[in-house]
């Protein structure tokens, strides 16, 4: 579904990501693991069109997308839940969700998706008229995911969804991702919280200073504590 080949990314003259390749198949949950500054967010931002790659190709369902704009990619079904959630704090919860459906012009579709979102996240319905900024961290993460689901994406990308959340909430988030995945959405996430992420992942890549140093099945990497210690610190 997503094919990244020989991707090199930089800011100005400094290269951050060096010639990496990976792929995501339909229905998979893929995790990219890496420490702070390994270049994870840069890769995701490049995939969704916020940043332009220096070199290499990104193909989505067979089409080259490395030059596409974010709005075009949203239309094609790629959604990113950004790092730190980035909800709109002065929009109400409902407005945040509706912004997620900005490109959808069909009011009926918006309505029915809103219904299913509220079924899945009853807390958001309770608080739909509250300002986004007043939600707790966990609720904000739910809101950020709900917002992304408003266009029925085929590929959902999440940038450190566990960041700053209490362990119990992290568990909820990953359960949710598992659910979303089983409803047919392909999931790509980057994480520092390797343990929880690997539990739900089909495959994982380990990124170190802009290079992929390891690739394998989620369980394998989780069980190989040497590798994990070497590249990820403690798990």
């Amino acid at each position: 579904m997503l094919q990244v080949e020989n991707l090199t990314i930089g800011y100005g003259k400094t290269e951050v990501v060096h010639n990496i390749s990976f792929h995501v198949q339909k229905g998979e949950i893929i995790t990219i693991l890496g420490a702070n500054g390994a270049g994870k967010s840069t890769i995701l931002n490049t995939i969704v069109g916020l940043h332009q790659a220096k070199d290499g190709s990104i193909r989505f369902q067979g089409k080259e997308i490395s030059k596409a704009r974010p709005d075009q990619l949203v239309k094609q079904g790629i959604r990113l839940v950004p790092e730190g959630r980035q909800i709109f704090p002065q929009h109400t919860v409902l407005e945040n969700i509706l912004l997620g459906a900005y490109i959808e012009k069909n009011a009926n579709k918006i309505d029915s998706r809103l219904q299913s979102i509220f079924e899945r996240f009853p807390r958001l319905e309770e608080r739909k008229n509250q300002m986004g900024g007043t939600l707790s961290g966990g609720e904000q993460q739910m809101l950020a995911i709900a917002r992304a689901l408003m266009t029925d994406p085929t590929l959902l990308i999440l940038d450190e969804p566990s960041l700053g959340l209490a362990p119990i909430i992290v568990g909820e988030v990953f359960d949710l991702l598992k659910q979303i995945s089983s409803s047919g959405v392909t999931v790509l996430l980057v994480e520092q919280m390797a343990n929880s992420a690997l539990k739900i992942s089909d495959r994982a890549y380990v990124l170190e200073t802009g290079r992929i140093v390891l690739e394998g099945k989620g369980e394998e990497i989780r069980n190989n504590s040497d590798i994990a210690k070497a590249y990820l610190g403690s798990i």
């Binding site: 949203v74 239309k75 980035q86 704090p89 929009h91 407005e95 912004l99 997620g100 900005y102 490109i103």
Partner: peptide
């Protein structure tokens, strides 16, 4: 309005707004 929400979104978080498909 939808447009108004987008204006407020862009004014607060231009990059995140782009992730919503807002140009």
């Amino acid at each position: 309005t939808n447009f108004g929400r987008a204006v407020r979104a862009v004014s607060f978080r231009p990059d995140t707004s782009r992730l919503m498909g807002i140009r």
